[in-house]
Design a protein around this nucleic acid. Structure first.
Lengths: 122, 122
DNA sequence: TGATTATATGCAATTTTACTCATTTACGTC
DNA sequence: GACGTAAATGAGTAAAATTGCATATAATCA
């Protein structure tokens, strides 16, 4: 059942935290890596698992791949709406992670901003 | 997070099938065993896991323990309502299991009925 | 009391999952 | 083309989960 793949993909703390961040905005692996303090390969593997479960999709932009929630699956399994938009928002860890995300974005050391700054400096 | 325990408990086919049956009515381990064709210890272990995640509670009656969904958790995590009452009902396997449950109940060889018949025969 | 039934659990085997390290592939900059 | 960064993946390991078999406990019945 693909339904079970979805549930299995959700049964991991790191992947729940990733989902929570992507709920807010599209992010690439290197950003998830920093915000959640995961190793590169570990972050990538969790993202791959979420992608295989069709919970997220990635869009390539230059050398980055921006991952975001896939709306198709939200329509397919109605429990995901409640899970993502209600239950997740109440979790302490998820709230803390969103703060980290905000900090990270404001710090201006995001992967893309860095490149843009480099470019601007030329 | 107890939230994660719930998600992990749901990430298994046998446990989803158990949940699906208990959605319909309270059942004891020996009935789940027959309907889902699981070994006794395996059925018991899955039930224990669901119980630990507080998804189900058991009520002892004579030598049986009747397990049913715990309404408290449904109020705590809103996604469970949609999951149990919408998404589960659409799964082929779950629909088939409900038919099996019906058959099992009608057959009159349920654990309690058997005892009742025995009693009546006396 | 002794036999039967329902349930839980200790132990061990097997499978699955998560993780790290090192490497590869792809894209972009100099 | 050489170098640097992003992302994926192969290999290996450690931890966790699933399961079966045998046994233990508790309740019921004869």
């Amino acid at each position: 059942m693909e339904f079970l793949d979805v549930l299995k993909a959700l049964g991991d703390e790191n992947r729940i935290r990733i989902i929570n961040l992507l709920r807010q905005e599209a992010l690439c692996v290197c950003e998830l890596e920093v915000i959640l303090n995961l190793s590169q390969s570990n972050a990538s593997r969790h993202v791959t698992k979420l992608k295989n479960a069709k919970l997220i999709i990635g869009e390539k932009k230059a050398q980055w791949i921006y991952y975001r929630l896939d709306r198709n699956i939200l329509e397919k399994f109605s429990f995901l709406n409640a899970l993502f938009h209600e239950d997740l928002t109440r979790l302490q860890q998820c709230q803390a992670d969103l703060l980290q995300l905000k900090k990270h974005k404001e710090s201006g050391i995001g992967c893309e901003e860095l490149t843009e700054n480099k470019t601007m400096r030329l």
